[in-house]
């Protein structure tokens, strides 16, 4: 006779293992991005790029505007800068006096505002030229928390800019 009890013990262990490792909330996703340029662009156009050369001579993909994010101590500001002038999206102050929940809410509001502004811009552009390039660059200072950077990137992609690139932090020495 086959003893069924140890088999059952084992089955419960397996079941338990799968139950505790099953975690929908931790699903990992990928975000596409453009690599930052490392050197000066030597070719005038993407078609003139010498494929055999190292990538630091490649042309950085131009973007029509830059999302400028600054985070110093307890302050956080977001600005959109295009060819003409910068437009402030919003600023958060005294973040250190807020509870984590309040902070989260303030950040969510700010990033939603950014997404709305960018959406308006992209619609305006698509009206003139349906095939307009949809790339945007993010310029953050070096102390910016990575999670905030990803949120800014998230807002850009949500509003229709699928090509996100990163500008070097302006406060980073050469």
């Amino acid at each position: 006779m086959i003893p069924i009890v140890p088999m059952l013990d084992l089955s419960f262990q397996i079941l338990f293992f799968f139950v505790i490792t099953f975690d929908m909330g931790q699903q990992e996703g990928y975000m596409a991005m453009n690599l930052p340029a490392t050197g000066e662009a030597k070719a005038k156009d993407q078609s003139q790029v010498d494929q055999s050369k190292l990538s630091d001579t490649e042309l950085d993909i131009p973007s029509d505007f830059v999302v400028v994010a600054r985070s110093y101590d307890a302050n956080f500001t977001l600005t959109v800068r295009d060819a003409e002038k910068p437009t402030e999206i919003g600023a958060l102050k005294d973040l250190d006096k807020m509870t984590p929940g309040e902070q989260q809410k303030a950040f969510d509001e700010l990033f939603n505002k950014l997404a709305d502004t960018l959406k308006a811009k992209v619609e305006e552009k698509k009206k003139d030229n349906p095939n307009a390039a949809n790339n945007v660059k993010i310029e953050a200072n070096s102390g910016m928390k990575y999670s905030h950077l990803v949120s800014v990137m998230d807002a850009c992609v949500r509003s229709g800019y699928s090509q996100v690139g990163f500008a070097p932090p302006p406060d980073l020495g050469p």
Partner: peptide, 18 residues
């Protein structure tokens, strides 16, 4: 990121929790 590009990698992807 900059070093990746400098040494010659061309394809890049970031990961985030959905």
């Amino acid at each position: 990121l900059r070093l990746c590009r400098q040494v010659g990698f061309k394809k890049m992807q970031l990961r985030a929790t959905i």
